[in-house]
Design a protein around this nucleic acid. Structure first.
Length: 280
DNA sequence: CACGAGACCTGTTCGC
DNA sequence: TGCGAACAGGTCTCGT
């Protein structure tokens, strides 16, 4: 579910003393930074990727949350000793609330703080994972560049694209190639760049790579500015779904040229594009 | 290396 | 109304 902008939004909610949680409710007592984990409740054991369930309390109890960051689609929490990482996959969500709040269906792991508040990992489809490790590189070490980072440039993207010969859509969604794009933002970026999802990466001219680079940055920045996208039954408080140009718009007209948006399958993922703006 | 199929999961929507 | 199929913001593993 969440892609880079949604995870960034959650990271900011957890880090800052804002008035909202990622689910739109009020964040009990503000930032989670400075809070100490007093116990961990594993409601669905397989959510815990590392360590083994028996070791999780020894590893986390007494640890203070020092910093909240994001790497690709991973939420990265620095603890007083070690690191706690979350990946929300398709349906994960995080909320911080008072201990007196009502538990919800699909709550999978609960981190109780000592101050009558808790952090809850809710995940309908059970794909999400949590890691408690000594070195975050063991989890995120294989990721490609951060698309909004300073080290990422049009020249670098062009070189990366030319070094491979894959269809653009699955390549851009490959987290080892570039970290953070998922189905929504890839479709939106390709439309803004005027590139067909099946276009071979090795065939791009510098000017096209430059357009793709700008499109990726713009679509991610706009997503973050709108607090991510809220679709399906999971409400996250974001508004970007109201600005989609192609995603979930098959059969409707392209806002640029009026042609009907089509849906095809690329790399086993539903893919929306404008056949006129994005010719092969 | 590139690519497709299948697995992991639950819920909603659509067609008959 | 009922019921199965298709689909859903992701990633991993296996086989060709």
């Amino acid at each position: 579910m969440p892609e880079l902008p949604e995870v960034e939004t959650i990271a900011r909610f957890l880090r800052n003393s804002t008035a909202f949680t990622s689910s739109g409710g009020s964040l009990a007592g503000g930032s989670v930074i400075g809070r100490v984990i007093r116990s961990v409740e594993l409601l669905w054991e397989r959510t815990l990727a590392e360590p083994l369930p028996a070791e999780v309390n020894t590893r986390l109890v007494g640890q203070e949350i020092r910093e909240v960051d994001r790497r690709g689609k991973f939420l990265v929490l620095e603890l007083s000793r070690g690191w706690l990482l979350f990946h929300l996959r398709m349906s994960g969500d995080i909320r911080v609330e008072q201990e007196s709040a009502t538990c919800l269906a699909h709550d999978r792991v609960i981190f109780h703080f000592g101050d009558d508040t808790r952090l809850v990992f809710n995940d309908t489809r059970k794909f999400g994972r949590i890691w408690a490790v000594d070195d975050p590189q063991s989890v995120v070490g294989g990721l490609g560049p951060e698309p909004l980072g300073n080290a990422f440039s049009a020249e670098l993207l062009h070189q990366m694209l030319r070094a491979r010969s894959r269809e653009l859509k699955p390549l851009l969604m490959d987290q080892a190639f570039l970290a953070g794009l998922g189905n929504i933002y890839t479709d939106e970026a390709l439309h803004r760049a005027g590139l067909h999802p099946r276009r071979r990466s090795s065939s791009l001219k510098m000017q096209e790579s430059e357009r793709l680079y700008q499109a990726i940055r713009e679509v991610l920045e706009e997503g973050i500015r709108r607090n991510g996208a809220s679709i399906d039954w999971v409400y996250r408080g974001g508004e970007f779904q109201n600005y989609f140009r192609v995603y979930q718009r098959q059969g409707q007209v392209c806002t640029t040229c009026g042609t009907k948006i089509e849906r095809i399958v690329v790399g086993q993922r539903g893919t929306r594009y404008c056949p006129k703006c994005q010719p092969l």
